[in-house]
Amino acid sequence: MTRSARLGLSLTVLAWAGLGLAPLVLDDWNIGLLTQYVTYGIFALSLGLIWGQAGILCFGQAIFFGIGAYSMALVTLGKLPWLGDSQWTGLALAVLLPMMVAALLGWIMFQGRALSGAHLAIVTLCAAVVCEIAARRWEFIGGFNGLFNVPPLSAPNGDPLSTNATYFFVGIAALLTYLLSLWIGRSPLGTVLAGIRNDERRTLHFGYDVRLHKIFVFTVSGAMAGFAGGLFTTQFGFVSPPLVGFALSTEVLIWVAVGGRSVLMGAFLGALAVRATENAMSASLDQYWLIALGALFILVVVVLPQGLFGKLLALAPPRRLGRGGTR
């Protein structure tokens, strides 16, 4: 393993270890915050998977996040009585519904060569705007104000989970999501997705059904984003139209770009870093923070495409793709 790959591996393991040990050093309040950041991290992973790996630039990733959040809320608030009100059903719906929407959207968008990267970005952007408008008008899901009093994650006996228990639940979910994304990225499927990202036509000529592969990864990503949304709403206790909208979609884009789009851990930590810094800003600096963030984003796009953490956290390629093969 090269030195930089060793560094990447160490830092990645260190980051997860650090997250695991956090409750020993942080108080309840900060653990609660960290749980939120980790949830956003899962959201960022979903974008990192399609953007970094397959080159699909989606400006509407929050659509799936929001649908997941709404699903969880609707179930646990008892608004879908035929499904019961168990949080597990809620989580399941939070994964399945966005997954189906993603599959449908992917099926429409990835038709032949109809939608190039730019077209896709604009179409997903408009879709996010339209989804927010639609959510605001739909009274059943709460209309403009959304839904409140969404119950937090609870133990089997009905008591809400403690702050630490919630943190570990979300943290382990994040780790599993990360490992799943990593597995996809490092498998031959990941290689083919990289080929699609690099040169779609050539991959098509090798006999791959490029469209199917794009729909597949887009669907998985939608499921992940929805899962994050479901977890989100149990922590914040509410869900509202901006969660499916343009603003959040572009925020997650910033996190992933700044953190490092082609390295999954970079995308994950990007979300944590940006959110944590935002929180640390005092109210008066807040308005300048957005300007700084925008400028940082421009800088990253123009000069640092691997983001701030991309180079540091890059892992070695899978052994079968390494130097000289089976050694």
Binding site: L57, I291, I298
Partner: peptide, 26 residues
């Protein structure tokens, strides 16, 4: 700097839009 990087023009100009919008707010 980014004429040849078509997709990146979307991102960079969108970052710019954030900066301008927030600048106007300020």
């Amino acid at each position: 700097h980014i004429y040849h990087r078509f997709i990146d023009t979307i991102l960079a100009t969108w970052g710019l839009s954030l900066v301008i919008k927030q600048g106007v707010v300020v």
